[in-house]
Simulated assay, not measured.
Amino acid sequence: MPKVGMPEIRKPQLVEATMAVIDEVGLSGASVTLISKKAGVSSGIIHHYFGGKHGLLEETMRTVLRRLSATSIAHLQAADPNNVAARVMAIVAANFDGYQVESKVVKTWLAFWAQAMHDKDLHRLQRVNERRLLSHLRYELKQALPAEQAQFMAQGIAALIDGIWLRGALNPDGISPENAQKIISDYLEKQLAPYLS
Rank of each mutant, 00 (worst) to 15 (best):
M1I: 06
V4M: 12
M6V: 12
M6R: 11
E8H: 03
I9E: 10
K11M: 12
K11I: 15
P12A: 09
L14W: 07
A17I: 01
M19K: 14
A20C: 00
V21N: 03
L27N: 06
L27H: 04
S28C: 06
G29C: 04
V32N: 07
I35K: 08
K38D: 00
A39M: 05
V41G: 01
V41N: 05
S42V: 01
S42P: 00
G44K: 05
H47K: 08
G51R: 03
G52R: 06
K53C: 10
K53W: 00
G55K: 05
L56G: 02
L56H: 01
E59R: 15
V64F: 00
L65F: 01
L65N: 02
R66G: 09
R67L: 07
L68F: 01
A70E: 11
T71I: 08
S72K: 09
Q77R: 10
A79C: 03
A86L: 04
V88Q: 04
A93T: 10
K107R: 15
W109G: 02
A114V: 04
Q115W: 02
Q115E: 14
D119K: 01
R124L: 15
R124W: 14
L125G: 13
R127S: 15
E130Y: 10
R132V: 01
L134I: 02
L137G: 00
Y139L: 12
E140W: 03
L141M: 05
A144R: 09
A147P: 15
Q151M: 08
F152D: 11
A154M: 05
A154F: 02
A158Y: 04
A159C: 04
A159T: 10
L160I: 00
D162G: 13
D162R: 14
W165E: 04
L170W: 07
N171R: 11
P172R: 05
G174C: 11
S176F: 02
N179W: 13
A180W: 05
Q181P: 11
K182L: 15
L188F: 00
L188V: 07
E189P: 00
P194N: 10
